[in-house]
Every structure is written in C-alpha cells, then in structure tokens.
Design a protein around this nucleic acid. Sequence first.
DNA 1: CGCAATTTTCAACAACTGTTGAAAAGCTGC
DNA 2: GCAGCTTTTCAACAGTTGTTGAAAATTGCG
Lengths: 222, 222
Amino acid sequence: MPAKRNTKASSKGSTSKRDRILDVAEKLFAEHGYDGVTLRQIASGARVDVALASYHFGKKLDLFNAVFERRSAYLNEARHEALRRVQEEAGSAGPTVEQIIEAFLRPLELAQETGDDGWRHYLALVAYINNSPYWGRRMMSKMFDSLVNEFIDALRNALPGASDTDLYWCYHNMSGALTLTLADTGRIDALSGGLCCSSDFEAAYDHMIPFMAAGFRKICGT
Amino acid sequence: MPAKRNTKASSKGSTSKRDRILDVAEKLFAEHGYDGVTLRQIASGARVDVALASYHFGKKLDLFNAVFERRSAYLNEARHEALRRVQEEAGSAGPTVEQIIEAFLRPLELAQETGDDGWRHYLALVAYINNSPYWGRRMMSKMFDSLVNEFIDALRNALPGASDTDLYWCYHNMSGALTLTLADTGRIDALSGGLCCSSDFEAAYDHMIPFMAAGFRKICGT
DNA sequence: CGCAATTTTCAACAACTGTTGAAAAGCTGC
DNA sequence: GCAGCTTTTCAACAGTTGTTGAAAATTGCG
C-alpha cells in the first residue's frame, strides 16, 4: 500500500511516477471519458507498469476521483476568493452582475496563464462530468454546490426582486455556455472558419461576461 | 446481410427487433456514452441476441452512427422549416432575434409533445456528442453545420453591423446552454431544490429565448 | 554497508469485449 | 409443403479489460 504519499520526488526536475499517472489520466479521461480510457493506456502514456496505478490509487474509479479532486480545492478557493474580493471592493452596495460573473469565470483562465496544459485538461474533464447524465448530478454537486450557491446568493443580491426559479434558469444557461467552452471541442473554431479559437478562454470570457450579464438582467428584473 | 430493410413488422403493434435495438442503443449511448455501453447490454435491453446487432448494423460504430442519423434528417427539416416560416411571416424586414432563436429551439420540444422518450434520449445523445472533444468536431459539423449556418446568416441580418467573431461567440454561448439542457443531467433540479425541472424543455426555452436574445443584442450591436 | 520500508515491475487470473461463421427458425409465394 | 429468401440464434474466437499476489528494484536511515 502507498504509505505517507509523496515521500520523495518533486525535488528533482522529473515529476514522480505517481503524478505522471495523474497527469496522463487527466488528459485521457478528459478526451475520451471514463470508459473510453484503459488503465493500460494511462500506464503506457506515463511510461509505467499497469499495476502501479492500482498500487497508488486502488480501483479505476478511485483514480478517476483522485484526478477530479486533485485540483478542485484550489479551484474552489480561487473562485471563492475572487468573489470575496469584488464584494469587499463594492462595499455595502454589493457588486454588480458583471463583477460577480467576472469573479465566477476569470479564475478559470489559470490554464493559459501558467501555460500548464494540465489545467486545460482538468477543466475539460469537469465539462465532461458536468454534461454527463450519469456522473454529472452526484459528482458536481458534491464538489461545487457550495461555491455555486455563494455566487447565486450574490446574484440574488444584485438582482433584487428576481424569483429563484428565474435565477436558477439563468445560472443554468451560464453554466452550459461555460461547460461547452471548457470542453474545448474545437467546434467553434471549425464553424467560424478560424475566427474564434475555443482554447482561447480569455476571448471566450470577454464575450461571455457581458452576454450573460445582459441575459440575467433581462430575465431577472432591472 | 440485411436486405431491403424493413420488409416486415411495424404493421403489428410490437416494434421490430431492429428498431428495438436502435431504441435501446439510443437510450444507453445517451446515458453512458459510446464506450460506456456494450453490445451485450444493448442486446439484453432489446431482448435479442448479441449477434443481431452486428447483422443489422455491422460494427459497433456503425450502430452508433445509425442511431445518430435516424432522427437527424427529420430534426434538421423541422428546424429549417421553422426558420423559413418566421422569415416568410416577417417579410422584407426580416425576423427579429427572438423569432430566430425561437425557431432554433422550439422544434426541439417534440420530445415532450409526443411523449416519446426516444426523442429525449436522442437529444441527450446529441448533447453528449456536441460536448465531446473526440466526436464533437467531426460528427456535429457533418450533420448540423448547414443548418447552423442558416441561422447564423439570419442572425447576421437581424443584427446589422455585428462582426462575425462576435456572432460566432454568441452562437457558442447559446449552443452551450442548449447542450446542457439537452443533456438532461438533472443537475439544475438538484441545485434549485426542485424549482427547475431539467427535462421540462418548454420552461427551459421560455427562459432561454429572451436570455439569449438579450445577450446577442448586447454583444452584437443594437 | 545492511536492514526495513516503500515503490515498481512481472506474470497471471477470470471476466468480458466485439465480431464471425454456421446452424436454426420464420416468412413468402407457388 | 417445399424452395428461396431473410431474420434470428447459437457457439465460439482471439483480444482486451481491471485486478491481484509475489518478486524485484529502489529508497531512507543507522
């Protein structure tokens, strides 16, 4: 069994085999889904024996969960912090719809900030899970509901008089657009003849923030 | 080999085994994705021997394509016709953004109109494909690009002066929200505490149409 | 070094995968 | 009722799957 987790490695330039497994699994799961990837493909991509994945993570499903959870805490914290900041800056009046949505989306740019493809793959995996009837409900709820409710509370404040039903449908619309962006399918690239680049999250959010804010305002009052 | 396709059956009350295979495959592929379903599960669900799927459709991938294509022509025609109708009614002025989006979405309600679960499963499958990095690009383009470009042309007309880049990003947002709706994950139900019902497409579109129209207007000019 | 603990590989397992060829059953027109 | 189809089942295949126990390699430490 794995002992203290991370006794060695990460001091040297090359990442540990354990992390390599997570990285490759992240990428492959995001591209092909849970059932579309075999442990042998993961092991081969990580240049490692098959049994090592089982040794470190147990069952295949446990590896899937480990991949999902590896970055979720950091991501939740970053988004929570972004919301807290705009709330602080706005004072008692509270932030605007645009500011709230901005805080909801911008932290997701860390993928292209750091140039780390891992984050891009991770977010595509989140999109896969969120859009999956089978995984979506349980997995996303457990991991993101608390954060999402924070944002909906903030939006409720910024849109006085809005009904909760309207609020949730609007959030649903935003979540869908975001999910498709994160999925990074390249479809918009092809459709637009190269005008839009689906992996350019900054451009996507530049368009999404005012778009969604206008939608929220239209449905939820003022 | 299968001969003329549909020599018998469909006259009697019970559907043919061939159709039962398509129905079950549609449902299971939508729920678990291509790799998450085995031919034996499909055959078992259709109360049929495994080999029969191969006999009628060939390889597993061919069955997947057959499921996808079975309803796509009808769906494309219905949406195309809906657009043509609002264009005709609007005359030389052309339809409004709301009318165009309405024509884009409302035909998708046929699922709950007919009470036919098959359409609900089919649309969930389309969502799965559209959100999948692997299948999304090729498969969706081949099947829906022509129709989508019709709608974007109409929107370009209704929003004079809009740049194509903005137009495509807006479409991307709408497509994402629609995709999540079709995926029918039940997540919004849980999140809203039952206030919103994800399989109630009518309610979803009632909120989506003015929401998206406001977004398009905000980004694409007037 | 030498010893213990951890990490990694090797080899193998039973179960399941998509696919196929041949046999059986069902149907249609004579 | 028999001949010529199509449809359906049966039985089996070669390959792959996740998982495991034991052996081997590596590491940390006195």
